[in-house]
Amino acid sequence: MKAEPLLEIKNLHVSIGEKEIIKGLHLTINHGEIHAIFGPNGSGKTTLLNALMGFSGYEITGEILFRGKKMTRLPINERAEMGIGMSFQRPPAIRGLQLRKLIEASTERNGDLIEKYAKALNLIDFLNREVNVGFSGGEIKRAELLQLLIQDPDLILLDEPESGVDIDNIVLIGEYTNQLLGRRVERGKRKTMKEQHREKLKSGLIITHTGHILEYIDADIGHILMEGRFACQANPREMFRTLKECGFNECYRCFRKEEAHG
């Protein structure tokens, strides 16, 4: 028997006001798969993630199923509780709320874990700072990762994890995004690596404009999003290579040609 997909999107349409941004999208993410979505600016990448998370301001038709359960109308926090977590590209700053307090309020997991991951992500001093207030691009991304590592979701939505991040940070962010996705298993434990792998493996949906994050994370399936539709599905590394050489112009050419042929 085939296992139930983790996330299923069926004929999803998303509009902001009168404007339709996502125009009939289908996607299935199975347990343990990492999907990467490439797309030019304005193609609807962030809208897709925001609609999956349930943010306000979007008109949605179609179906979103998580572990077979319809979640199209569920409030954001219930989606989070079901096991969906998101790293924001530009999260809001919250005055007067310390990062530590936010993490403690949103989890019942013990405090040692917060210290452990904060230390690993060079964020110890940031635990007592106000959430995202005066954080640099890299600091924001590391703080998002810290929150997700504690939250430990089964499906991780990453919105441009490499944007605004310098080279030193991107290595660290890549490393801990792998940890978050359950890609880092250690040898020599009681359980075999395969067993550990099966237990820890998480699923991911990564949105990337530049694709650089894929130098650090092994995505399984790549998609090109153009004008609210998936234009192409392929090996993400090959996609990234082609995009590096030709940019999205080549995608547009292909997209137009296929559209013309119906």
Binding site: F55, N77, A80, F88, P92, I94, G96, L102, S106, Q151
Partner: peptide
């Protein structure tokens, strides 16, 4: 700001919990 409330909700907090945390921070 709705954006702030929803950010905290994405971390699993209910709307009321998120609102209370933001007000607490504000004060």
């Amino acid at each position: 700001a709705q954006e702030e409330v929803e950010y905290l909700m994405a971390r699993g907090l209910s709307e009321q919990e998120a609102t209370a945390l933001i007000i607490k921070g504000f004060l």
